[in-house]
Each structure stands twice: as C-alpha cells, then as structure tokens.
C-alpha cells in the first residue's frame, strides 16, 4: 500500500510530532506510515482523513502486489 500522508502533512504545515499529537499517536507511528513501513488501522486512517479533510482513498492507495 502506498500513501501521500507526508504530502498532506506538509500541506497543513505540520511536523511529524505535531501531526502525531493531533491524532493521539507517537511520532514513530507517523514516520513509519509515511515511509510505507506500517499500514494503519481503520480508526487511525479515519482520524487522518478527518484531519486532512479528504477521503481516505485520496491519500492511501493499493499497489499491484496488494
């Protein structure tokens, strides 16, 4: 799965720490999501969607091997 969470974060002018604080997770979680190392749960994805004010499929997408 690939994502553009980093792009959305930069659009909102937030650091990883600030984004993590806003949705109640650790900075390591945001870093891992942005690097594609971790696929977040539905709840976390929905929180990101609410913060970015965009539907989930606009910043998360499936890759071919998925």
């Amino acid at each position: 799965m690939k994502n553009t969470v980093k792009v959305q974060r930069v659009i909102l002018d937030l650091t990883q720490e600030e984004l993590a604080e806003k949705i109640g997770v650790s900075r390591q979680t945001i870093s891992s999501i942005e690097k594609g190392r971790y696929v977040p749960s539905t709840v976390l994805a929905l929180k990101l969607s609410k913060l970015f004010n965009k539907p989930i499929h606009e910043f998360f997408s499936l890759e071919e091997e998925d």
Binding site: A20, V25, R27, Q28, P40
Partner: peptide, 11 residues
C-alpha cells in the same frame, strides 16, 4: 509503557 502508547508501538 512507553511515553506514547499506540497501535504501532503495541505491534
């Protein structure tokens, strides 16, 4: 616990 506990840290 760690400073911040979330689903990723739990994993």
């Amino acid at each position: 616990k760690e400073k911040v506990e979330d689903e990723y840290i739990a994993m």
